[in-house]
Design a protein around this nucleic acid. Structure first.
Lengths: 265, 265
DNA sequence: TACCGCGTTCCACTACGTGGAACAAGTGGT
DNA sequence: ACCACTTGTTCCACGTAGTGGAACGCGGTA
């Protein structure tokens, strides 16, 4: 669409901005590729990286070569890619810079409730798990560190949304939608907003198979110094072992954890 | 290579390559900025990032805005920048993906020798520390996780070089030089190559105030499955507490650690 | 008031990244 | 032995995304 250039007053173009979920700039692609390379499951093939990062093959190839040259990616045994020394150093820096007390607080919560505990950070239209402590139970949940989840269908997400002004919540709904994840997912703005009201009243959120069948979670937000939600903590259980009432009994321990974490995130 | 292109037969230009330490591509700058932002010492101001990453101010500003938009950087209290949720998730992924046994092996070494222990990875013309376990001594060494050091002046670096073919070592010397760090630094190719020969004989390297005055280290390489050096481990002491003979007594414990680490890096 | 350092904005230029397409090198199926 | 298919790698004409010097605005300091 080559319009006439200079004139043209775009209706809603914040500088670089109309692009809601498009291909994007070189940096964006490179970072997605880095994430794909760092993804669990050993060294990855080019094709897998391409699929995971949603980047054209030739671009991915070029970017991977560049990242390799810079030491962020290490080519392993043939044409598989893994995290390079510089990425591992950066990670050590970031993870090592986080106070050890974060881990201890989460550990106490896990011991108290005996269930899987997650710490996630709010990142745009989704949240990202940055810690996971496995519970006592013999089974594993599908979640993984680094994984991203919608806000509207998870306990942590809802507790984050509950601390945002309603206009902001509506804007998020507008841009990300309310995709159905299970039959119980709240998929209308009205239902979600009402739920957020309830979350505010209680101080914590419950996800009752809204994100994943048979999975029941309780979550609470971690607030930054300005009262803005930075992330949240959740306790995850399976529906056939822990009832809705039982899981709510975890709330005090959960809230103790989120309050303790507030100054640390 | 069919022909030499349109005109121009460059004397020594491997595609992108002549650039030894120049400004560089967008990705390079962005990654340096990310490293600067993640650097220890709380949230950083724009000017500091500019200084640390050696990037023009306006470029840094634009890149920081972009990284912020993508969630890799979080603007904190005014105009200071810190690690964003997505970077922290990526770090958790990378660091969490590393086997816990790495930490245990290093821990055993640290307990055995009672001194500061470093794990570094080889990255191009330098090495990068990715772990540091502080020793029993009351003082601290200046090294930090994420920090990069030359290869020719450090124990780990020399033990890495000792496992590279001589031509490769000469190429590294050619491109990076042998900058003098202390009066004792080996600054001639001849002296360095002779030292590497000695390192090969012994199986470990000693840095006797060659990198930092009053600091004496012993280091050994960690070899990958193909025999290529991936990184190395060192034990760091101060000259006025541990003599040259005493530090060499740490060698068996050190070599046990590097051998145990080999399949894990 | 004049000064300085810092964050922010502007803008014309072009180097940098782009991605479709063709090529090369396996891999497996019958 | 042949072909069909997937995956890694190279090429190249195109145009946009990134560039960075310079100027602006502001708050604090001498």
């Amino acid at each position: 669409m080559p319009d006439d250039g200079p004139t043209e007053a775009a209706p809603e173009s914040p500088a670089r901005g109309g692009r809601t979920s498009a291909a994007g700039t070189a940096l964006e692609k490179s970072m997605r590729i880095l994430e794909a390379v760092a993804a669990p499951g050993g060294p990855h093939r080019l094709t897998d990286v391409v699929a995971a990062a949603a980047v054209p093959k030739s671009s991915a190839f070029r970017i991977l070569a560049s990242l390799t040259e810079q030491g962020f990616v290490r080519p392993q045994s043939g044409s598989r890619y893994g995290a390079g020394p510089r990425l591992r150093a950066l990670s050590a820096l970031v993870s090592g810079g986080e106070p050890a007390s974060i881990g201890r607080i989460l550990g106490v919560l896990r011991e108290t409730v005996g269930q899987t505990v997650h710490l996630a950070l709010h990142s745009g239209q989704s949240l990202t798990y940055i810690r996971k402590l496995e519970g006592d139970q013999p089974f594993r949940t599908a979640s993984r560190v680094g994984m991203r989840m919608p806000l509207h269908s998870t306990a942590i997400g809802k507790s984050i949304l509950a601390h945002l002004p309603e206009e902001e919540v509506r804007a998020l709904i507008e841009s990300a939608g309310l995709p159905r994840r299970t039959p119980k997912t709240l998929t209308t703005p009205g239902a979600l907003l009402a739920e957020l009201e309830a979350v505010r009243d209680r101080g914590f959120a419950v996800d009752d198979e809204e994100n994943e069948p048979t999975i029941r979670c309780i979550g609470a937000a971690v607030l930054g110094p300005d009262g803005h939600p930075i992330g949240g903590v959740s306790v995850t259980t399976v529906t056939f072992l822990v009832s809705r009432e039982e899981i709510e009994a975890y709330a005090p321990a959960l809230l103790a954890a989120t309050e303790a974490l507030a100054p640390l995130l």
